[in-house]
Structures are given as structure tokens and as C-alpha cells.
């Protein structure tokens, strides 16, 4: 069949009923596929194209990854973003080293440790808040601009960030105030986010361990695990007497690790005093 005859055959197919049905079926499949993509990837598409439907959702999407990142960092470094006094510990399960902060420490042998973070949970809350501040400022700034680009009058009063560790979650509150005006006025005085995390319980257990370390120089790991049946508690004793505690929630895989040095025994008679 030559080219002229081929084109003619195609034209005839399209003109025929069967051909039209086929075309409509294909179009339908394409439309349904696009709709499905939009439905499942809408938040990402929105954020990619800067489309903002409501400020709360926007902030949630914008901050989610950063909050998760900072929470993980703080959890694996003894509660701090930048630990002051730490031991560099290689976690074989995670495949890298972390600076793990000493939460109770003494540089002497055969002596109880001195508590370094008696207010562990407020400290963690403060560290998370400070760790996400910069990203939050950017997100709110972008939020304001996106509304301005859509013809709104958008005024933003920056506020502080409060983080609360609560059972099974972390509540993050952004106290920024956003006022949007286009015709009518909408005012947003705070933005709340909830992140799934068991850091509340893990840090609470860490507190109990620290009290044992101060009082007895050691914590009874079996006792803790028999009581908390979803907990794995590892105690990694280092050569210099440091202990790295690793608490793992067996349900979620979430970890909290920290270091102590209490009632360390030196080698020989005198060791390193």
C-alpha cells in the first residue's frame, strides 16, 4: 500500500464508528489518569506550583520534612541539635556516627555522675523549636508572598514557636499572625501541627535511667524492658567507662540515644584519675 492509500485508510478508520469509539475510550483513560494523578499528588503539585488553598495546609506541607529531620537529629544526639559535650558514637544499625551528648557525666573514676540535663523534655522542645526556626521563617514569608501575588493584602507578624512533647505526638505551634484581606478579612493567629513521635515516652524513660545513673551508677535494663514491652533498651559500654544508651520503640522503630559516665572503673589500681 503506498502512502496515499495509507493515509486514506487511516482517514476512513477515524471516520468509522469503531474508530470514534476507540478515540473516545482513549481520551477517557487519559482524563481519568490525569485526574487520579492530580488527586493523589495534589499537595505536592500545589506546593510545586505555589498554589495555596489554605494557610494551615501550606505550613503543614512546608514544615513537615524539616520537623521530621530535626526531631530525628535531636533524638539521636541526646536531645540537642549541636551537643556541647558529647562522645562520637558509631551506630551500626544506622550506619553512621553521631555526636551523642552526655546527659549525666563525671570525669572522675568511681564517682557518681553530675546531671547535665535535669530538664530534658523542655530542653528537647527548645532544641526542636530553634532547629526549625529558620525554615519556618522562610515558609511564612513564602506564604505571605503567595497571597500577595493573588491580589490579597497579606500582613504577617512573626511569632515564636512552641513545641510540646505529648504522648505519641509532638505538637508544634507557630504563633505567627497572618491577616489576609481581599474584600473580607481573614485572620490566623496561630498554626498548629502534630507530628507522630513517641519522644515523650522515650525521653521520660531516659529521665528514669539518668536518675538510676546518679544514684547507683547504672540502670537495670531488664527491669525497664519487662515493664515497657514495646521497648528495646541497649547499653553500650565504652572503654573509658562511658555508656551509650539506645532506646528503640519496637512499634515504630523510633530511637533515642544518649551518653552517661558514672562510677566508671579504671584499669589497674589507679587508672586515669
Amino acid at each position: 500500500m503506498n502512502e496515499k492509500e495509507g493515509n486514506s485508510a487511516k482517514f476512513k478508520f477515524l471516520k468509522s464508528r469503531r474508530g470514534q469509539v476507540t478515540v473516545f475510550i482513549l481520551l477517557g483513560i487519559i482524563i481519568v489518569s490525569v485526574a487520579a494523578v492530580i488527586y493523589f499528588l495534589y499537595p505536592q503539585i500545589k506546593s510545586t506550583f505555589g498554589i495555596v488553598t489554605d494557610p494551615q495546609s501550606y505550613i503543614q506541607t512546608c514544615m513537615q520534612d524539616k520537623i521530621n529531620e530535626v526531631v530525628k537529629e535531636v533524638s539521636l544526639q541526646g536531645g540537642s541539635v549541636n551537643p556541647g559535650h558529647f562522645i562520637l558514637y558509631y551506630n551500626s544499625d544506622l550506619g553512621r556516627s553521631y555526636p551523642v551528648e552526655y546527659l549525666c557525666y563525671t570525669n572522675k573514676d568511681s564517682q557518681p555522675c553530675t546531671m547535665q540535663q535535669p530538664l530534658l523534655q523542655p530542653h528537647i522542645e527548645s532544641e526542636i523549636a530553634n532547629g526549625i526556626k529558620s525554615t519556618a521563617d522562610t515558609c511564612f514569608s513564602n506564604l505571605q508572598k503567595s497571597y500577595q501575588n493573588r491580589g490579597y493584602t497579606a500582613s504577617l507578624i512573626p511569632g515564636n514557636i512552641t513545641v510540646e512533647l505529648i504522648p505519641n505526638q509532638i505538637k508544634v505551634t507557630f504563633n505567627d499572625q497572618l491577616t489576609l484581606t481581599r474584600g473580607n478579612t481573614q485572620r490566623y493567629t496561630e498554626f498548629n501541627m502534630f507530628v507522630n513521635s513517641n519522644l515523650y515516652e522515650l525521653s521520660g524513660i531516659a529521665n528514669s535511667i539518668l536518675q538510676w545513673e546518679v544514684q547507683y551508677g547504672d540502670a537495670n535494663t531488664p527491669l525497664f524492658m519487662m515493664y515497657y514491652t514495646h521497648l528495646l533498651m541497649e547499653k553500650k559500654l565504652q572503654t573509658d567507662g562511658t555508656k551509650v544508651y539506645i532506646l528503640t520503640d519496637l512499634d515504630t522503630g523510633e530511637k533515642f540515644q544518649f551518653a552517661t559516665r558514672s562510677y566508671a572503673w579504671p584499669p589497674g589500681y589507679g587508672g586515669n584519675q
Binding site: 524492658m225 514495646h230 521497648l231 528495646l232
Partner: peptide, 8 residues
């Protein structure tokens, strides 16, 4: 403990 063998 809790189905896991721990080494201390």
C-alpha cells in the same frame, strides 16, 4: 527481651 536478643 521482647523477642530480641540483647548483648550487654
Amino acid at each position: 527481651y521482647n523477642g530480641q536478643v540483647t548483648v550487654e
